[in-house]
């Protein structure tokens, strides 16, 4: 089925345990032309990452029940298929930012953030990813 899918809109994995924020982000991202897959915890996100090929970007909260964003990053960084991670956090301290970046996060954004800023970030990250993929190919 996926092979025949002609939907060319880029796919974004969104992991956030707060239902309202997740729904809002999905709404805005879909409005901006992205296809959004929603997860409410880290384990679910990891499953989607393993199953899904064409992920343009991952937006993940750092603090989630069960598996947090940082753990997902740590487990995913050694996979062959790389996709850019945007991490959201309310503990906006330097330590958390550095830790996320060390684990390979493309961007770390502090809550609360502007929705337009998030869209711009996703676009920028996707573009950068396409460029690096293009260079590799």
């Amino acid at each position: 089925m996926e092979a025949f899918c002609l939907d060319l809109s880029p796919r974004v994995l969104l992991a956030e345990d707060d239902h309202e924020l997740r729904e809002l982000l999905a709404l805005v991202l879909e409005g901006a032309g992205y296809q959004v897959v929603q997860c409410d915890n880290g384990l679910q996100l990891l499953g989607h990452l393993e199953r899904t090929d064409d992920v343009a970007a991952v937006i993940s909260d750092l603090r989630m029940p069960g598996l947090g964003g940082l753990e997902v990053l740590a487990r995913h960084r050694h996979r062959s298929r790389q996709c850019p991670f945007i991490c959201m956090t309310a503990f906006g301290d330097e330590l958390t930012h550095n830790r996320a970046r060390q684990l390979g996060a493309a961007e770390v954004i502090n809550k609360p953030f502007d929705l337009d800023e998030m869209i711009a970030l996703v676009e920028r990250v996707c573009l950068r990813n396409q460029e690096t993929s293009g260079v590799k190919q």
């Binding site: 309202e20 924020l21 502090n110 809550k111 609360p112 953030f113 502007d114 929705l115």
Partner: peptide, 18 residues
Amino acid sequence: MAHELGTPLNVIAGRAKL
């Protein structure tokens, strides 16, 4: 507590913008 407040604040700001 920052997280507890940051998330709903984010939702409020976003919804208002919408």
